[in-house]
Nucleic acid binder design. Structure first.
Lengths: 136, 136
DNA sequence: GATATAGTTGACGTTAACGTTAATTAAGTG
DNA sequence: CACTTAATTAACGTTAACGTCAACTATATC
């Protein structure tokens, strides 16, 4: 199931190009094992790429994505002080995400009202275009 | 209340630079009135800038933001066919936004569990570091 | 053993979204 | 009216995030 994938397969599976994967590797996001010089992508790479792409969809830069990922990665068995630091970063990130959710909610409700007006206008137009149905 | 603002005031009010405002103008997002050559920003510019910045926070490109804004702007008294087109664009955009919301929700719940593990670890550590409280 | 197929490493190119600087101008102030 | 202050245009610079291309290599197949 989680056998290592070649770069083309891995890229295909996530809708990105091989070039993107090499670029992410150089950025430290991915660390595929090598068979000879050829890259082989593992389950861990899969998770990290997933997190990266999700971050990007939400408007975070690659560097921000890296921070987010490292946040998740540093969890198991860390020093006490680092755990506290992690907790603080989590709270900060949560604030950002919740703020983005509010942006989305506002946009959605604005869109709802535009759609409503739009539909109302269409109804009005149709009753004007076909006067018989309005007269009868 | 909604008197026209100079470029510096307007920029300051939104946390952007004058250069950004001129750039957005050239992109067709803003259309400040001129007193002489000096730009004066109106309520309409305010709304359009707000929408633009919100779009950017959600990871949309400037061109996508322009499309979104034009969507809102084309609503009053459009042709029937265009109204239908608008409705479709609204539905498409809604899909994108809801998808982004799911991304956020997933991230939030993942963060919750990381935080939980983090706190559990901290508790465990503290009961090991202070054996008296565990013994007593 | 020639050749087709993937993959690799540079290295330069490109686009979006502004930053920065210079040269000019208009408006207010002592 | 000399001078400061804020604004303007024009033009080149910059950074992130890849795209593109060339030259090379390893493997498999006929």
């Amino acid at each position: 199931m989680d056998q290592a994938l070649s770069i083309a397969e891995f890229a295909e599976a996530f809708g990105v190009t091989p070039r993107t994967l090499r670029f992410y590797e150089q950025k430290g996001i991915l660390k595929p094992v090598r068979r000879g010089r050829t890259r082989l992508y593992s389950e861990r790479d899969k998770i990290r790429l997933k997190l990266t792409l999700r971050g990007k969809r939400l408007g975070f830069s690659l560097n921000e994505c890296i921070n987010i990922i490292n946040m998740y990665d540093s969890s198991p068995a860390a020093e006490n002080l680092q755990l506290l630091h992690l907790c603080r970063k989590i709270r900060e990130h949560r604030v950002q995400l919740i703020s983005k959710m509010k942006d989305i909610e506002e946009t959605l409700s604005a869109m709802d009202s535009v759609e409503e007006q739009c539909l109302a206008q269409l109804l009005e137009d149709s009753s004007v275009d076909k006067p018989e149905s309005a007269v009868k």
